[in-house]
Design a protein around this nucleic acid. Structure first.
Lengths: 111, 111
DNA sequence: TAAGCTATGTATAAGGA
DNA sequence: TTCCTTATACATAGCTT
């Protein structure tokens, strides 16, 4: 868009790259907001600037909630009963914790 | 965009809502791809369809990698390593378990 | 019912203040 | 810088198949 067509490759000029990042980052957040409102859905976005600065967007609650819902869904493919859901959630939490902490992790759940 | 301007509110007609979701979901993924290429950055997107079907996009590696990078970064900024990420994941897990099981839940984490 | 069309609204690349 | 301006390219709403 704009006066000229940008070729789809990394923008060499760091200044232009930064400007383009800001504009398009805002554009994506706007689109994500619209999608979540129009369709009444959850949307989450994570973006890193060229200098590594993080921007997150989450239409509903925190971005962590969206992560969790992601873990939920990955584990609930089969329409599980509560116990199964609990177990697989625990397993997936263990897994992500062990990666997070670069070591083993265990989780006890009381419901 | 399109023939008429859509008001920014939930689309009532389920059929239209679904169509709009599909088109805009693809649009966001295209924008995210362009952003990541043009600016040489990592971008991750999670979206749920009106029927709860999940779509993820990740410019680089799996969406889990982006999650991890998120936790890493949050923890670098706050000073506390791992513990915060672990705590917020545990809290989220407790919450979701208590909803799943229609009662209180508690979680112990060992890392 | 998914896929294509097109008129129209939106995003944005350059440039300017 | 940070915010306008505006020409242009892009996304998409409603329609058609």
């Amino acid at each position: 868009m704009g006066r000229n067509k940008l070729p789809l490759k990394k923008i060499d000029n760091p200044c232009r790259r930064k400007i383009t990042y800001s504009k398009r980052r805002d554009g994506i957040i706007k689109k994500a907001t619209e999608l979540s409102v129009l369709c009444d859905t959850d949307v989450g976005v994570l973006m890193y600037s060229p200098h590594g600065r993080l921007t997150t967007f989450s239409s509903n609650g925190s971005i962590e909630d969206i992560f969790l819902r992601y873990f939920d869904q990955s584990n609930e493919q089969g329409g599980t009963v509560e116990k199964e859901g609990v177990r697989s959630l625990s397993l997936s939490l263990s897994l992500s914790l062990s990666v997070l902490s670069y070591g083993p992790a265990s989780v006890c759940v009381y419901v």
